[in-house]
């Protein structure tokens, strides 16, 4: 059900044509690893995220987040 909703929304969005630019900060041990493993399993997800790898989410500074928005990010996804 949840997945259906998501894909329906995606269709709606495709019409508006807006492709957000999102910067991700991924923890090496957790989220980055999960993202790799998503790749190994060939799961598919939208190609809007660019990733900065950090050793731990604790590394992430408020400055980084603000700088990302300043540099044109429409969203910042931090993943621990």
């Amino acid at each position: 059900m949840a997945q259906e909703n998501v894909s329906m929304k995606e269709n709606d969005m495709a019409q508006t044509g807006f492709e957000p630019r999102i910067l991700g900060f991924f923890c090496h041990w957790c989220c980055y690893a999960a993202a790799d493993s998503a790749g190994v399993s060939r799961y598919q997800y939208p190609p809007n995220v660019r990733v900065v790898r950090v050793m731990c989410t604790g590394r992430i500074d408020t400055r980084f987040i603000l700088e990302a928005f300043k540099c044109g990010a429409d969203g910042v996804f931090t993943g621990g």
């Binding site: 041990w29 957790c30 993202a35 493993s37 998503a38 987040i65 996804f77 931090t78 993943g79």
Partner: peptide, 16 residues
């Protein structure tokens, strides 16, 4: 616009 989420190394589906 900023989100903080947790996905362990073993949680690829959750990450997706």
């Amino acid at each position: 616009r900023m989100s903080l989420e947790w996905a362990s190394a073993a949680e690829a589906p959750r990450f997706v």
